[in-house]
């Protein structure tokens, strides 16, 4: 493939992705206005997007670089709180003075400002945690990241300006389908391109055998810090989008449970598989909501509602899935055009 061809294809794929996003956006907006898509389904779709961001960004650290981090909710919290504080205390008053608030352009600008603030702060947090702790390996790193997550939560709990234990409310609701899924596409493209580049090979080398990687000249700490900062950055973006979607933040949203849920998504999807993370993020988010709709069964005159045991079914499903596929849904494979092509060939024969 010549250089020109490469860039042509790149242009086409970026265009196609953007066209698909815009198409989906128009579809969602028209479905919502006609009442076909209610707020509940819309909420599930949006939460799926936020969880995809979290899972894929953690996959970058845990799956692709092989570092065991369980402090991802901490980065999400940093992004969520800093972006919310930034839009509420800094940008909003500035825009109100100039009468820019409430216009679609103003709202988008406000959201982007918030996202950038969240992403920058979360990346810095990633850097601060990453540089000292990434010299640790395995379990020790896990404990260090766990500690970091707790430090973030307790710090937020003690900042009165953002509501402390009561929670931070009154955040403008700015997140739309378009911006959220634009972030998802950017993150997916970034992860995918990383995997096929020389840089990406260094990441995989660090995962597979750190000593061997060092021996062939890969500076493993640098690679790990890059992975950590990028993952933290996108967790921060997810946090920022979440803050401006729900309009309410509570330090409890970012406790260890949340980190574990994100980790579950990565492991369930197959560590290292980008599409696996996407698949399991959507699956876990949607199934947890779907379990609310289990029909009531009447056994011997007593009504029994299985949706009360929602969390039991959910955990059971996770256990069964992990027994059935220890490597996760997709293992280290990816779902992409090559799979479609393979099936197409299969169908023709």
């Amino acid at each position: 493939m010549s250089r020109r061809q490469f860039w042509l294809w790149r242009l086409i794929s970026v265009g196609a992705a953007l066209a698909a996003l815009l198409g989906a956006n128009v579809l969602i907006i028209s479905l919502r206005s006609t009442g076909w898509l209610d707020d509940y389904t819309y909420r599930v779709i949006m939460l799926c997007g936020i969880n995809i961001l979290l899972a894929v960004s953690l996959n970058l650290i845990n799956g692709i670089t092989g570092q065991f981090s369980i402090g991802h909710a901490g980065f999400q919290g940093v992004g969520a709180y800093t972006s919310a504080a930034f839009t509420v205390f800094v940008v909003s008053p500035w825009m109100r003075e100039r009468g820019l608030q409430g216009t679609p352009t103003g709202d988008s600008a406000l959201l982007i400002a918030g996202i950038i603030a969240g992403a920058v702060c979360a990346s810095l947090a990633g850097l601060f945690v990453g540089i000292p702790s990434l010299r640790l390996r395995g379990d020790y790193l896990a404990i260090a990241t766990l500690g970091f997550g707790e430090i973030i939560r307790v710090t937020i709990l003690n900042i009165e300006q953002v509501g402390g234990a009561r929670g931070f409310y009154g955040i403008p609701l700015l997140t739309t389908f378009f911006w959220l899924y634009l972030a998802v596409i950017v993150l997916l493209a970034l992860s995918r391109n990383l995997l096929v580049s020389t840089q990406g090979l260094a990441f995989l080398a660090v995962r597979d055998d750190e000593i061997a990687a060092e021996a062939v000249g890969v500076y493993s700490t640098r690679i790990k810090v890059i992975a950590f900062v990028t993952g933290a950055c996108f967790a921060g973006i997810a946090g920022a989008l979440y803050a401006h979607f729900d309009g309410y933040l509570n330090p409890d949203n970012f406790r260890l449970d949340q980190s574990i849920i994100i980790l579950t998504m990565v492991v369930l999807g197959g560590q290292g598989s980008i599409t696996g993370s996407v698949l399991s993020a959507v699956l876990l988010t949607a199934v947890l909501e779907w379990l609310r709709f289990l029909p009531t069964i009447t056994v011997g005159g007593r009504a029994f509602s299985p949706s009360e045991l929602r969390m039991v079914f959910f955990s059971l499903m996770l256990i069964l899935l992990m027994l059935w596929r220890q490597t996760g849904l997709l293992g280290r494979r990816e779902f992409g055009w090559h799979v479609v092509r393979q099936y197409w060939r299969l169908l023709r024969t």
């Binding site: 209610d38 707020d39 509940y40 909420r43 234990a165 929670g167 949203n253």
Partner: peptide, 30 residues
């Protein structure tokens, strides 16, 4: 699940799907 995000999902579901005329809850102020 004692979680603020889930509380929002639960209430959205109650209003949009079950068409409730009123909502009772929660205990925790947050």
């Amino acid at each position: 699940r004692s979680d603020a995000q889930e509380a929002r999902s639960a209430v959205t579901k109650l209003i949009q799907r079950d068409g409730v005329v009123a909502v009772l809850g929660e205990v925790a102020s947050s």
